[in-house]
Design a protein around this nucleic acid. Structure first.
Length: 782
RNA sequence: GGGUCGAUGGUCUAGUGGCUAUGACGCCGCCUUGACGUGGCGGAAAUCGCAGGUUCAAUUCCUGCUCGACCCACCA
């Protein structure tokens, strides 16, 4: 009998991948079925920034999300797996400013927005192409405004949702307006949230300045890094334990140059060992100042304006930029012999996460969302979500516990979701529109004729936009169809899964939790998968400045998506720690693809037959398969894809191929065995292959589907469920012994310089007697 | 400064209070074996980050340190 494999080529052809992807799209394989009776599994994927190409970390984590989607689909869930693109906020504006060489605040708003759109248009959807090459099984790639649809965060519909959440929060009394010292980036020209503040290590000068004590006329020395803020000095502190200054308690100091009298007081904030042990508290030099003036209930004097320049409170420094003001005041102090010395010190400066410029504290009237008073509820809700890995939950808990002021919602930017408010020109009544429409108050009239309060017909539209995280933190509401199918939303909220990076727990996950708790009274997700980072060979973060960033396109071009996907599982588990990648091994891990391919080729050369009475060897491998299936299904359930992949590889290569297939080869060819025994082998090889393909389908979807369709079925493997093995024979304990025996025979032949086909006289151990016939034929034992 | 996590052959990983520490990639040697040389068999290669401690016994438990990642923080 001549056996012809159904798979002709000797290895996987990666050019098939994109053909398969196209076929999947044509078939609508992953389209979301709203009417499905299956339980829903919804994934709130992180929308990547549209204008930056995806890097290796993205590729890795989106592949893992795809494995989540595919494995849940094969576990019988109706999977909602939409893809979004983030097109909101500062990064878009900054990019547009750079490309067109314009300044936002010097450009008419309409025109600036048009420029942003033009830029986004040009940038295209490059990152989506990468995702398609990786084979992600998202429901839709282009269709918008429906369940499973692709979305952009600057879609008018998305913005309508953002505005609706604001209106609801407003009506619940959770939003208020207040003047507070606010983190402000003079370069971006906007208030920024605590979560947007970064720190930069650097050197700065600590200036020792002479003050006079009013009551005693004695000279005291105060060290400061912010001499330009002398004008806003409010109080001077020393440590209660500091004997040097005890006598000054309750006395007053006269601030040099400006002459205001400020109290001197004991307070533990002052550290005796720093500077002179005396610290001046200004409004505001840093977070310490903000906290202390709040604590001591002292009215601040703001010295810096929103343009980053000193104001009239700074007297002679008025109009200077902060950095220039510092130079000028130091020169003035030297002139008047008030500067004792300067020391260079290391310190950490708060900077804006986007512009990387130092932030200042300025007085701004902004809208706030209440969060501080909800910390116990937030902790409670956080604890109701299931985290993978469990220890990741601590990142969220720690952040919640550190929240100390409410969330500043408003930004003075253009390319963002508008705050939907109008103000009555006459009586300042704040008009909040009904939800249901996307509002642009800066260029539209309000949807009412006259002020409900005073009857005036003149309104001013709100100019500000929201913090981008205010948009992002409703993504799970958006994808669950809130805007288009409230019933569906209500039935399926909370969302099943939030996959995201550990670095944005404090904003994306936290803010989503906050809004969800405020609006729906429960946590937004059932499960959160928090991933660590892909780092370079040395364990260091990949960044453009270090030049160690790896573009996944190189790998996709060279090895294909399947190689990348199997590598991303075999390389390690990004849930528990950073992944240190070394790409010289991607070639090695992808060898498994070739092995699997050839196993399938071999198996495909035998006829597919009905189950007959099985031989013991066949029963044994099915027992092994059963155990594998149970372990892998459990791995999939718990998102342990690395364990699953390694386990499957080990079974397929080191048990099934190396031992089982070698043992049954002669029988499958039918030499010296009955037809019944031959058919038992035929049945078993296909049975194992079919189930192995199903187990691997979430990880390597292209190749498994290709083999499946060539060998088994016209319909995609991705319509199958994970295997359910109903046979048990109790023979799994023999595996180790079989492997040992075979290895011993091979070694013996090798040691004797014999060909593997050569006859050999060796005794099959008594305990392996049930496999004796196969073993004898396999090794040509005489 | 504080917290969390990580560190196992050249590389990536498994693992455990106790025989000669798992597997893979790479490397070296040998081998056509009716799927696969993108294969098979064999081999070399690790004082399990460093220094202490607990224990009869530690890679595994404890303490300190170094390095890396992430987060937090009020040192002017």
């Amino acid at each position: 009998m001549d056996f012809q494999p159904k798979l002709k080529e000797k290895q996987w052809d990666k050019s098939i991948e994109q053909k398969m992807f196209k076929k999947w799209q044509e078939e609508g394989l992953y389209k979301f079925d709203k009417k499905s009776k299956k339980p829903l599994y919804s994934i709130d994927t992180p929308p990547p920034y549209v204008n930056t190409p995806i890097h290796i970390g993205h590729a890795y984590t989106y592949v893992w999300q795809d494995i989540m989607a595919r494995s849940r689909r094969m576990m019988g869930f109706n999977v909602l797996f939409p893809i979004g693109l983030d097109k909101n906020g500062l990064p878009i504006e900054v990019m547009a400013e750079k490309i067109f060489n314009i300044k936002m605040h010097e450009t008419p708003r309409e025109e600036f927005i048009a420029k942003c759109k033009e830029m986004l248009e040009k940038a295209g959807d490059a990152s989506l192409d990468s995702f398609k090459r990786l084979g992600l099984s998202c429901n839709e790639w282009q269709v918008k405004y429906e369940l499973g649809g692709r979305y952009d965060t600057d879609d008018p519909e998305y913005r309508r949702l953002t505005q609706e959440t604001f209106i609801q929060l407003w009506r619940k009394g959770l939003i208020y307006e207040d003047v507070k010292p606010t983190n402000y980036c003079p370069v971006c020209g906007t208030a920024i949230a605590d979560a947007e503040v970064e720190y930069k290590e650097g050197k700065t000068k600590l200036n020792y300045i002479k003050f006079k004590v009013k009551e005693t006329n004695e000279e005291i020395i105060i060290a400061t890094t912010r001499p330009e803020l002398l004008c806003s000095c409010k109080i001077i502190l020393f440590n209660p334990e500091d004997q040097r200054y005890k006598h000054l308690n309750g006395k007053h100091a006269i601030v040099p140059i400006y002459g205001q009298e400020v109290e001197i007081r004991a307070h533990p904030y002052a550290k005796p060992e720093f500077g002179s042990g005396l610290v001046m508290i200004c409004s505001f030099g840093d977070y310490g100042d903000v906290r202390l003036l709040r604590e001591l209930n002292i009215e601040p004097t703001y010295a810096i304006n929103t343009d980053g320049r000193m104001n009239e409170n700074a007297g002679m420094l008025k109009g200077f930029l902060v950095a220039d003001a510092r130079k000028a005041i130091i020169a003035e102090l030297q002139e008047r012999d008030l500067l004792v010395k300067q020391e260079e010190i290391d310190h950490r400066e708060p900077i804006c996460w986007r512009s990387k410029n130092p932030i200042e504290f300025v007085a701004l009237k902004e809208f706030y969302l209440k969060q501080v008073e909800f910390i116990p509820q937030l902790l409670d809700a956080a604890n109701k979500m299931n985290f993978f890995a469990p220890e990741s939950k601590q990142i969220l808990i720690d952040w919640i516990n550190s929240v100390s002021i409410d969330w500043v919602l408003t930004r003075r930017r253009y390319y963002g979701t508008e705050v939907p408010l109008w103000y009555c020109k006459k009586c300042n009544y704040i008009y909040v529109p009904d939800p249901g429409k996307y509002y642009q108050p800066w260029k539209e009239k309000p949807p009412i004729e006259k002020c409900p309060n005073c009857g005036s017909k003149e309104f001013v539209g709100e100019q500000r936009t929201f913090d981008t995280w205010f948009d992002s933190s409703s993504s799970e509401v958006y994808i669950l169809g809130y805007l288009w199918d409230k019933k569906f939303f209500e039935k399926h909220f909370p969302c099943s899964m939030r996959p995201q990076g550990k670095e944005i727990v404090r904003n994306w996950l936290y803010y989503t939790l906050l809004k969800s708790l405020h609006l729906y009274g429960k946590p937004p997700f059932k499960e959160c998968w928090i991933h660590m980072h892909v780092v370079d060979e040395k364990g260091e973060k990949m960044s453009k400045s270090l030049g160690n960033v790896i573009d996944p396109h190189e790998i996709l071009d060279k090895y294909g998506a399947e190689a990348f996907r199997i590598w991303s599982c075999l390389e390690g588990d990004i849930t528990h720690g950073d992944i240190r990648c070394s790409f010289n091994r991607i070639e090695g891990t992808s060898k498994f693809l070739t092995k699997l391919w050839n196993i399938a080729r071999f198996v495909s050369s035998f006829p597919q037959v009905e189950k007959t009475e099985l031989t013991d060897t066949d029963k044994w491998i099915i027992d092994e398969l059963y155990l594998l299936v149970e372990r892998v299904k459990n791995n999939y359930k718990n998102y342990e894809f690395s364990d699953a992949a390694n386990d499957i590889r080990n079974f397929v290569w080191n048990v099934f191929a190396s031992h089982y297939l070698e043992m049954i080869k002669v029988r499958a060819y039918g030499q010296g065995f009955s037809e019944k025994e031959q058919k038992s082998a035929w049945f078993t090889v296909h049975f194992v292959l079919k189930n192995v393909l199903k187990l691997l389908a979430p990880i390597i979807p292209f190749m498994t589907d290709y083999i499946w369709r060539e060998v088994y079925d016209k319909e995609s493997i991705h319509k199958q469920e994970l295997p359910e093995i109903n046979y048990r024979f109790g023979l799994e304990n023999y595996t180790q012994k079989i492997i040992e025996f075979n290895s011993a025979v091979w070694k013996e032949k090798k040691d004797k310089g014999l060909s593997l086909k050569a006859e050999i006289a060796i005794k099959v151990p008594e305990e392996l007697k049930m496999f004796k016939k196969d073993l004898v034929k396999m090794h040509n034992i005489i």
